[in-house]
Design a protein around this nucleic acid. Structure first.
Length: 511
RNA sequence: GUCUCGGUAGCUCAGCUGGUUAGAGCGGUGGAUUCAUAGCCCACAGGUCGCGUGUUCAAGUCACGCUCGAGACACCA
């Protein structure tokens, strides 16, 4: 059994923004965690490349849509490399491979008698390229974005019989763990209770897309294309493309991590489509919140978009990861404030965790010949050992519940308490009397052991920082042996060398 | 317009099924200390718990009304 986690397939109308980075980093942390826990992980990400907007964008630049997609798609993979995202599959919806899966999936849904030809009628804004739902005064209504009158359109589309799945969808979303967070679940329940309507799955005016088999003018509309990427990604390494290969590759997904704006499509449309095609359902759909900046929505028109590339070059990966994971509770909206960012990095990472390691290593080196103390009877009968056990338990529970912010706080609290332990024991005073040496050894050993465990717990969240901690403890993490086993107390080797300490993170300054 | 969620210290937020002097983190101020990255540790915030009414022996915690903010109300990648 593998653990399958997905980001949305990002739309290639532009390079990745902070929101995409956020989603992807969260998925990455979860994927790393699950791997460390010994699970076989398939971490899927990718891009959605079809649609009118892309077609137009390419036209504006007088290039072929495929060329445009190649360019942006490359930017995405480069970004994921820069951010050290450990994805396993990167699916592109313009790939032949994906097309095969879409067609087969469509075949199955059609066989279930869930496809019919209908007419999409409605008021259409040419500027938005969208139908507007505005039944009352549409003839005088102007599109709020474009301030233009709407046009009445009559378009032939294929429809999917979503209405048929009303009761089944109700049952699915009734499961309290299927949609998270629960506030959004209520919204979906409310939405579904009003009655599901069939939705259109093809367009006739969009050339850049996957052609519907047997219907020349039609291409599949986004939800019958992009969502399938989660499935088609699973057979990326197969020589022959086929839906069955993909399904056998690990379907269903354990979790779809998405932005709250596309929750409905994942929690309502998608399950219905899967039932129709005879596929299993994803276990969970988690809609996270949006990021604001200094309390304001980010937008091109406001000109306050935070460029992730800039963040990366200015602060590095781990500080940004820490902020996004620890300071924003998954599901809620989050606000990026520069001052807050600097404060939390300096406090949590530099002062609390970094300085703890530094002061501990320094003492040990100074008093015990640059080594971890020897002749220590490692006992689990001390406050740090029991605190460690409690911390590890909480952390694992929180991580399993996708409460990454709380799991991060568990680590931090452990570091704070280890600092307190030091201040309480005051080994720098005890060491002045030789008779205290055995006790001081024990104290220092315990504190070093705490930092070792803190480093290990940080591994899925802040891989680089974790590695630096490991280096300063003498490279004791064993990649080959199970991570969870190494979280046990007392595994730090006595009398092993401690390298010269260096700051694991530089303090940031206010702008 | 209808529905949902929220309005708690300068900032970000905890406060489960109502019950002693309302909590944490950050920022700010003072102190103690030196193993350490001016760091860790200790102390200090006199907050009408949005406003009002009600239920109750007792309400931040329940009910109703008002107000402010966020979101949902189908094709918004």
């Amino acid at each position: 059994m593998s653990f399958v986690i997905t980001t949305p397939l990002y739309y290639v109308n532009d390079k990745p923004h902070l929101g995409s980075i956020y989603t992807t980093i969260i998925c990455d942390a979860i994927a790393r965690y699950k791997r460390l826990m010994g699970e076989q992980v398939i971490f899927i990400t990718g891009v959605d490349e079809h649609g009118l907007k892309i077609q137009r964008k390419a036209n504006e630049n007088s290039i072929d849509p495929q060329i445009h997609c190649n360019q942006i798609s490359n930017i995405f993979t480069e970004n994921w490399m820069d951010w050290d995202i450990t994805y396993d599959k990167f699916i592109r919806t313009s790939s032949k491979h994906h097309e095969t899966v879409v067609n087969e999936f469509y075949g199955r849904v059609k066989k279930s008698d869930d496809i019919y030809m209908g007419v999409q009628k409605g008021w259409y804004c040419v500027g938005c390229e969208e139908f507007k739902d505005n039944p009352e005064n549409s003839s005088t209504y102007k599109c709020p974005i474009h301030q233009k009158n709407l046009e009445w359109r009559n378009e032939e589309n294929l429809f999917f019989r979503l209405s048929k799945y009303q009761s089944q969808i109700e049952e699915i979303i009734n499961n309290p763990t299927f949609i998270q967070p629960k506030e959004r679940r209520n919204e979906i329940i409310n939405f579904v209770s009003k009655g599901l309507k069939d939705f259109s799955i093809s367009r006739t005016n969009v050339a850049w897309g996957i052609s519907v088999p047997g219907l020349d003018k039609h291409t599949f509309y986004v939800w019958f294309d992009a969502l399938l990427g989660y499935v088609s990604a699973l057979s990326l390494d197969e020589k022959e493309d086929s839906l069955n290969k993909a399904i056998n590759g690990g379907w269903p997904a354990n979790i779809h991590l998405i932005g709250k704006d596309i929750l409905r499509f994942h929690a309502v449309y998608w399950p219905a489509m899967l039932i129709s095609a005879g596929l299993e359902l994803p276990k969970k759909v988690l809609g996270h919140g949006f990021l604001t900046r200094e309390g304001q929505k980010m937008g091109k028109s406001l000109g306050n978009v935070l460029d992730p590339k800039l963040l990366l070059s200015k602060y590095g990966r781990d500080p940004v990861r820490w902020f996004l994971i620890k300071d924003i509770s998954l599901g809620n909206d989050g606000d990026f404030q520069n001052k807050r960012f600097v404060d939390i990095i300096n406090n949590d990472l530099a002062n609390t965790i970094g300085n703890l390691l530094n002061r501990t290593s320094s003492m040990s080196r100074k008093w015990f010949k640059n080594k971890v103390p020897n002749d220590v009877k490692t006992t689990e009968n001390n406050e740090l050992a029991s605190l460690s056990k409690i911390t590890v338990d909480r952390y694992i529970n929180n991580f399993n519940a996708y409460k990454l912010d709380l799991a991060s706080s568990d680590i931090l609290n452990f570091a704070i308490n280890t600092n307190l332990y030091l201040n309480d024991k005051q080994p720098w005073i005890l060491i002045k009397q030789d008779s205290n040496i055995p006790y001081v050894k024990e104290i220092i050993y315990n504190v070093l052991e705490s930092t070792r465990i803190i480093g290990l717990l940080l591994l899925p969240i802040l891989p680089e920082l974790s590695a630096k901690i490991d280096v300063q403890l003498g490279c004791i993490y064993k990649k080959e042996s199970p991570w969870q086993g190494q979280l046990k107390w007392g595994l730090l080797n006595q009398d092993s060398e401690l390298p010269n300490p260096f700051p694991i993170i530089n303090k940031l300054e206010y702008e």
